[in-house]
Amino acid sequence: MLVAWKYKFRNSFIDTFDPRARWIVSFLVLASVLNFWDFRFIIFFFALSMLQVKLTKLTWEETKRAWTFIIVLVVFIVGINAFVFGRGGPALLGDIEPHVFWERVILLPFGWSWTLNLTAEKTAFAITQIVRMLTVASLFFIIPWTMDPSLYGVTFGGMGLPYRFAFAMDLAFRFVPTLARDFQVTLDAQKARGFEIERLDGGVVATIRKVAPLLVPVVMNAIIAGEDIVNAMDLRCFGLKERTWIGKLTYQTRDYVLIAFGITLLVVSLVLNHVFGLGEFWVPQWLIDLAG
């Protein structure tokens, strides 16, 4: 069976909103952020996203593992990728005349060479990209702790999604922590058979061979669990017709205000970007000066 996230009711400001309104506004903010590559605009959205986290009354203790994971992921993968290669962002980076801090040419076999450099533009891009990703991640990552899992289905159903899809979302959300739990159990079971995660050395093939005892049972269990759920649902008539949701959600005035705020934000963003041409990639002058 599926386990749930560590949700609890915290009586916070955010708890007073309808979960549908929260999803809608989160997506509106996401769509707004995507208009901007200018760090000065993105920092505003970052502040907005952090304000939401603050208002959930989540503690650092509860979320530090998730934060660490996100920060490591964003900084190392997105950050370094952007910093070194200048990839994963607007194509315009290629057109800007780079201001170089440091450069080295690496000689490869067959007479090829590869120029590795750090420029003012890449630095600005990396920082912008990191903050942009953290903004988007923190918009959504609070959901597991702050939305009642028993309302997942009716939330998506209530936003007009077909009931099959809405219930699938309900299951999918709970599938993630279930996978984490199963992985831990399998890790323990294999440790009891002398498996040491510290001994994962050697080449790619050797490493894959060594993690097979972890991955195979977890994947197989997920497949079996899926079949169980399908049987259990079939036996109780799921999928015959449009279903009733016993969870009940009602929009309050505050929910309309929140959604109106989200729409305004998106409209303003679109206007700034498409009408006034604001929000394009920006490199601070002092950084260019620094590169000389």
Partner: peptide, 28 residues
């Protein structure tokens, strides 16, 4: 089913007991 772990599909007891009836689209 044999294992209650395999029987339960929802996250809350209330929803679990209601599951089949919801699927039959009875009034709330």
């Amino acid at each position: 089913l044999q294992d209650p772990e395999r029987q339960i599909v929802t996250s809350k007891v209330l929803n679990e007991v209601a599951f089949g009836l919801e699927n039959l689209a009875l009034p709330r």
